[in-house]
Design a protein around this nucleic acid. Sequence first.
DNA 1: GCGTTGTACCTCAGTAGAGAGATACCCTCT
DNA 2: AGAGGGTATCTCTCTACTGAGGTACAACGC
Lengths: 170, 170
Amino acid sequence: MTDNELPLKLWVVLARAAAAVRRHAVADQERHGLSEGEFAVLEALYHKGPMLLVEVQRKILVSSGGITYLVDRLAGKGLAERRPCATDRRASYAALTKEGERLIRSIFPAHGQAIARAVSGLTDAEKRQAVKLLRKLGLSAAELSAPGDAEPAPRVASESGSARQASEAR
Amino acid sequence: MTDNELPLKLWVVLARAAAAVRRHAVADQERHGLSEGEFAVLEALYHKGPMLLVEVQRKILVSSGGITYLVDRLAGKGLAERRPCATDRRASYAALTKEGERLIRSIFPAHGQAIARAVSGLTDAEKRQAVKLLRKLGLSAAELSAPGDAEPAPRVASESGSARQASEAR
DNA sequence: GCGTTGTACCTCAGTAGAGAGATACCCTCT
DNA sequence: AGAGGGTATCTCTCTACTGAGGTACAACGC
């Protein structure tokens, strides 16, 4: 039975597994008042030291507006700060404050354990196998032509029907 | 040393693979003006017929407010409708309208192909292997004690017949 | 019957972040 | 020196929800 729904099934179990594990990760992060994105920024800075905002952005896969928002929030909490870049005045670094470093250092080990627990349903051999397959899958999917190519496709459903507020602007 | 960061690495590649494949799925759905959640509802109703809102909610894993919102949106687009439940006046069914059924029927095959393309980096044998591992991982992660419990009451042996719950497919 | 507990749905405020566009700057080429 | 194009960040609007809380009904025990 060469299952021609194999790709769909793979996508379903992939999405569900990721969601299930993510729930554990996020629950752990929220115990410290951090959103997923905030934690990702802290973790990146913790492991790599100060980075340009654009580097962090690419690492954690958020939009340009998103990284501004996240660094703003962390700065507001006193966990991170911006530092000017000496060689490029457009750019700036994000860096952990003392408090930010203290926080991430104190919670990271437990976080790792929470993740370990979440994935403990697989043996180490299975984990290695899964890493290999998922790495291959992730890389190949990421390399496929940018989404939205091909045909615009027939627009369905009015879509212009929703009341659009006429906001006066500046 | 046997890599004690294996769980973390698994989580990273899992999240990245899921995000990469999801981008393709979402891009395809958006060509028809549907968000991920809207598409998930249509697909569920298409495959299972009319369902109670609470059933759809559990199937696609959104909050109670979320399912109300999604059905409202689909109703506003004329793709789905609510129907009273004869035996329980609190409850109501969601069902596809003619137009909704026509739409999902017309786009579903191409959607399957988009997914197939997104996961085409793996051979069929690898896909099957991945499905097996991810199913095991997803089920075990979903069964772990609810997130947020500081002291997980030792409810260890929940149900030994672990296989069940969370039927796949969406 | 009546009280209690559980369930299905809705309401509403709030949030994380997307994405388009603007601004300021850098770099190269002439 | 100046034009042109590329890049880093910020601003702003908008979306797709979440989660808490409320209402109406259901279901059970007495």
